[in-house]
Simulated assay, not measured.
Amino acid sequence: MPELAETLIVIDMQKALQYSYDFTGLVHKINHRIAAYRQANLPIIFIQHNDQDIVRGSDLWQLSGKLDKQKEDVVVEKFHPNAFYQTNLNKVLMQQGSRTIELCGAQTEYCCNASIVMAHGLGYKILMEHDMTTTFDNDYMIAENTISFFEHIWDQRFVTFQ
């Protein structure tokens, strides 16, 4: 069983992204991590994006109904790819005393990457498992290649993979 961080952060696992690469499989893997954090009585934070395309309160804005989100879990809303930018995420983590975080979610090259780079810059130790983010195919790469490409960039620079 991979090591647990002090807090699990689930980024943008919203209905708007349900057609991204292996979204259902990722929800299952995230729920497995959530179960481990719940068993260890460690906090889970859900990040929820909103902008002109994913409008707050709309159906696409809702977190996937298949995620094991409980009422005691913290939700941080954001409007920028970086989950720390003009949100209370850093304050919440500091109040919890968390210096080690585990990240997972969507979209690999946007919100996950921006949040990972910022968290690293703020001094957090970031743990991840491989293949715990998702994205869409783009004009340059299929989703699997985008995920591998970013994991290679993150590995030992920003993230400790386990």
Rank of each mutant, 00 (worst) to 15 (best):
M118V: 05
F136Q: 07
I147E: 00
Y140T: 04
F149W: 15
Y124N: 14
D131F: 11
L127Q: 11
Y140D: 13
G123S: 14
M128H: 04
N145W: 08
E129S: 15
S98H: 11
V117N: 03
M128L: 03
N145K: 13
H120A: 08
H130K: 09
E151I: 05
S115D: 02
H120G: 14
G123K: 14
C104R: 10
H152Y: 09
F150C: 12
M128R: 04
Y124F: 12
T134R: 07
E102T: 05
I116G: 13
V117C: 06
T135W: 00
Y110G: 11
L122Y: 14
D131C: 04
T146A: 08
H120L: 08
Q96W: 13
T108E: 02
Y110I: 04
T146Y: 00
M132W: 14
G121I: 09
L122A: 11
N145E: 14
A106T: 05
S98E: 14
A106Q: 02
N138S: 05
C104A: 13
M132F: 15
G97A: 12
S148Y: 00
C111R: 00
I153L: 11
Y124C: 14
C112V: 14
Q107E: 07
K125I: 15
C112I: 07
L93Q: 07
C111N: 00
G97W: 08
E102R: 06
E144F: 01
Q95W: 05
K91N: 12
M128A: 15
G97Q: 09
A114N: 01
A114V: 01
E151Q: 07
W154G: 00
V92F: 06
W154H: 04
A143H: 11
N138E: 01
I153Q: 10
I142P: 02
D139Y: 05
K125W: 12
Q95N: 07
T108A: 01
E109M: 03
G121F: 14
K91C: 12
K91T: 15
A106F: 03
A143E: 08
M141R: 12
I153S: 09
W154L: 00
I116K: 12
W154C: 00
T146N: 06
C111G: 00
V92H: 09
I147D: 01
Y140C: 04
T108S: 02
I126L: 12
D131E: 15
T108K: 02
F149G: 09
C112A: 09
W154M: 01
N145V: 08
D139M: 06
A114R: 01
N113L: 02
V117S: 04
N113Y: 06
L122P: 11
E109N: 08
M132P: 09
M141D: 13
D131Q: 13
V117H: 04
H152M: 13
D139C: 03
E144C: 03
E102W: 07
H130V: 03
D131I: 02
S115R: 02
Y124P: 15
G123T: 13
E102D: 08
V92N: 08
G105I: 06
C111P: 00
